[in-house]
Amino acid sequence: MAELTYRDAVARGIAQEMARDPDVIFFGEDVAKAGGVFKATVGLYEQFGPRRVRDTPISEQAILGAAMGAAMTGLKPIAEIMFSDFIAVCFDFIANEFPKSRYMSNGQTKCPLVVRTGNGAGSRFGAQHSQSVENWCMMIPGLKVVAPSTPLDVIGLLAAAVRDPDPVIFFEHKSLYAVKGEVPDGEILDTLGTAKIVRPGKDCTILALALMVPRALEAAKRLKEQHGIDCEVIDVRSLVPLDTQTILGSVARTHRVFTVEENPRLCGWGAEIASIIADEAFYDLDGPIVRITTPHIPLPAADILEDMVLPTVDRIAETVRRSLSA
């Protein structure tokens, strides 16, 4: 058992898989000699060498295209897109190529690859380097979409993503890179498509993802201490496949649901889950499903402004308290 940062967990997860499987290669901008702009891949170049850990030019289309071609022909590439906002410049591969080649070819083409990318706000980088864009990927049939919130989950889900035969978009939250957590020694392997109940409770269910998980947990702690409200907090972890059974099971016990989403409001991941709950668990509900999201705006850069728009512990706690007392 060791205490590891989320950042170091990324490098450990990649190293674990590269050591296990010589077909795993890793490339992206500044990821090799510099160890990544977020220092999440430090040491990999030294450990695995320039054949397997490669710096690329600033060519996001070439990075993802090359990952796909390599995956189609027998390698298991991990490609990094430095900031998830940059997915917009290589979206063809994410929207049109990775997820459709198997289907269009009637099952001939395989695409086992992982795209790792730095997602989310909190660094005061402004509207083009701070977005939470997991919903851009969630909406596309053929992709798998994962967003871990802890160092342990980073390693386990990254390992699962590398071993998965489908294209997986792996969202790392930039504001979690410095967060520490206990990680056992030895190989760590988790399962895609599984949510995790990170705090059991009986009064309501709070669904959260990535940076919103620690905030939801803090809000739940406060609600219990100050108001006696017992929240169940679920770390959704995997948007595709989506663990609806864990979510619906929780709703059946608590009868109230809140989503905490960093994405701007329209078409956020919580909207899809709210729709599933409304379809399949309507009669389990004692009140409306409430989505706590960033407002539908581009993100401002200034710290005082950015802090106002992302869901905060205060906003989560207050929204839950008011809704349950209404």
Binding site: G65, G69, A70, M72, T73, S101
Partner: peptide
Amino acid sequence: VMGSYAIIGAHLPIACGAALTA
């Protein structure tokens, strides 16, 4: 025949990836 690509340009990087495997 590793596919026919209908979004202009996409298969050039993909061909690079296959060449990387080789």
